[in-house]
Amino acid sequence: MAKGVYFLAFVVLLSTASSLVFAEDPSPLQDICVAIDDHKSETAVFVNGKFCKDLKYAEAKDFFFPGLQNPGNTDNRVGSNVTAVNVDQIPGLNTLGISLARIDFAPYGQNPPHTHPRGTEILVVVEGSLLVGFVTSNTENRLFTKVLNKGDVFVFPIGLIHFQFNVGHSNALAFAALSSQNAGVITIADAVFGSDPPINPDVLAKAFQLDKNIIEELQKKFEY
């Protein structure tokens, strides 16, 4: 009887593990698959959303990115800058399911509420203090938030709205790793108020319970 129970538990565990695997980037079926833009090239093969360079043409530079020691320009309306290092910057990341970002913050700058539809994020603070948080889905809309200091680490689950805000008087710096070669980013305010073409103001006025004139003013602020 006990063996039967253990076997059933093992099957359930395998099923759960399989579900978790397919929730993120598919596992690679080869050692490397260097992304290539020229899909008409004789050396290109289509795999997992990217054309791949023939292995014999791969080089060390395909797995290299310089420059994360350089601060990003935070002179913008949100006071932050994200330097992404994903498959577009390192072609050798293709099919490997990871990426990286440097996030610079001016005093009181923020990385505004956003989501990564294809990746979980783990963030470490290198300098300064950040107020961070994420909100669970609509069943509860529960907010998890914490102030992080140098050396602290925080995790933002895949797909959930999250943010970082510099609560210090000086610049702040953080590095983030993501469980996708191209996790994507949807900044909530930009997507809602800065879409092209704009979302009908009547729709947003009802959704946010605001006057239509306020919605139109917000759309002007976010239009590209």
Rank of each mutant, 00 (worst) to 15 (best):
K3C: 00
V5Q: 07
L14A: 05
S19L: 08
L20A: 12
P26M: 01
S27R: 10
P28W: 11
L29T: 15
D31Y: 11
I32M: 12
I32H: 15
C33S: 11
I36R: 15
H39R: 14
A44F: 02
V47P: 12
G49H: 06
A58W: 01
D62Y: 13
F63H: 03
F65L: 03
F65G: 00
P66A: 13
Q69N: 12
D75A: 12
V87N: 06
D88V: 14
Q89W: 05
Q89A: 10
T95G: 11
L96E: 10
L96R: 12
A101V: 12
I103V: 15
G109W: 00
G119R: 04
I122S: 06
V126K: 02
V126T: 08
L130S: 04
V132E: 05
G133C: 07
G133L: 02
V135L: 12
S137A: 07
T139V: 08
N141L: 12
R142A: 11
T145M: 03
L148G: 14
K150W: 01
K150P: 00
D152Q: 11
I161T: 14
I161L: 14
H162Y: 15
A172F: 03
L173F: 00
L173P: 00
F175L: 05
S180V: 08
Q181Y: 07
N182M: 11
G184M: 08
A191K: 03
F193G: 04
G194M: 02
G194V: 01
D196L: 02
N200T: 04
L204C: 11
A205D: 02
A205Y: 04
K206D: 06
F208T: 09
I215S: 04
E216H: 01
Y224H: 13
